[in-house]
Amino acid sequence: MTTNASPATTRARTSALALVGDVVVVLAFAGTGREFHSEGNPILGVLLTAWPFLEGLLVAWALPPIRRRPLRVWPGGVAVWLGTYVIGMILRGATGAGLAVPFLIVAATVLGVAFLGWRAVAWLIRRAVRRA
């Protein structure tokens, strides 16, 4: 596949798609949790659960390593994971939302697997395409 896109355009497109992927991870995490616990209004409930983690995600995305190489598992993916998780939990705690130990463990695990996992799959696909 040949494109005439400049490197800057390609980088911007990759970053935008990576950010969308990360937002999807957070929304899926919040939606799955809400569904698992059979809690009320699905759309509002997901947004209420997701907002602290979306804030954390945006703060993490402000870091230069993430913007420069958003598909890298290290350091970008790890920074996205930890920033989203830590800031999300701080905001949850500050607003009186639950911070039960099982939730802390499940959230760290699920977000880590999802953020790092999709990046690892993207890396494998890019590698396979480059070899083909």
Results as ranks from 00 to 15, higher is better:
Ala5Trp: 15
Val113Leu: 05
Gly98Met: 12
Asn41Met: 07
Gly98Glu: 12
Ala18Met: 09
Arg130Lys: 14
Leu19Ala: 13
Pro64Trp: 00
Ala94Met: 00
Leu58Ser: 09
Ala16Gly: 05
Gly96Trp: 12
Leu116Tyr: 10
Ala107Tyr: 13
Ala8Thr: 00
Gly112Arg: 05
Val59Gln: 11
Ala30Pro: 12
Gly31Ile: 08
Val121Arg: 00
Gly45Trp: 10
Arg130Met: 12
Ala62Lys: 02
Trp118Glu: 04
Thr95Tyr: 06
Ala108Trp: 11
Arg69Pro: 14
Thr95Ser: 09
Leu17Ser: 13
Arg92His: 06
Leu48Trp: 08
Phe36His: 14
Ala12Tyr: 04
Ser15Phe: 11
Leu63Phe: 01
Thr9Arg: 02
Arg119Phe: 08
Leu71Met: 15
Pro65Gly: 10
Trp123Thr: 09
Val46Phe: 09
Pro7Glu: 04
Ala107Gln: 13
Gly31Trp: 01
Gly112Lys: 06
Ala114Gly: 03
Arg92Glu: 06
Pro52Ser: 03
Gly88Glu: 03
Asp22Tyr: 00
Trp81Asp: 13
Gly31Glu: 07
Gly98Asn: 11
Leu111Ser: 02
Leu17Met: 14
Glu39Asn: 09
Ala100Leu: 06
Gly21Val: 12
Leu99Arg: 05
Val46Asp: 05
Leu63Lys: 04
Leu124Cys: 02
Thr9Gln: 10
Trp74Ala: 14
Phe53Thr: 07
Thr49Cys: 00
Val26Ser: 08
Gly93Lys: 06
Leu57Lys: 13
Gly88Tyr: 08
Val80Lys: 12
Leu124Met: 11
Pro75Ile: 07
Met89Gly: 01
Ile66Trp: 09
Gly31Cys: 08
Val121Leu: 03
Val106Thr: 01
Thr3Gly: 01
Val110Glu: 08
Ala16Lys: 04
Thr49Met: 03
Leu63Tyr: 06
Leu44Ala: 15
Val78His: 01
Pro75Phe: 04
Met89Asn: 08
Val24Phe: 10
Ala122Gln: 08
Phe103Pro: 04
Val110Lys: 11
Met1His: 15
Pro102Trp: 05
Arg131Val: 04
Leu27Met: 09
Arg68Thr: 03
Met1Arg: 11
Val106Trp: 04
Ala12Gly: 01
Thr95Val: 13
Val129Gln: 15
Pro7Asn: 00
Val23Gln: 09
Ala94His: 04
Leu71Tyr: 14
Gly40Glu: 11
Gly83Gln: 13
Arg34Cys: 13
Ala132Asp: 12
Asn41Ala: 14
Ala16Tyr: 08
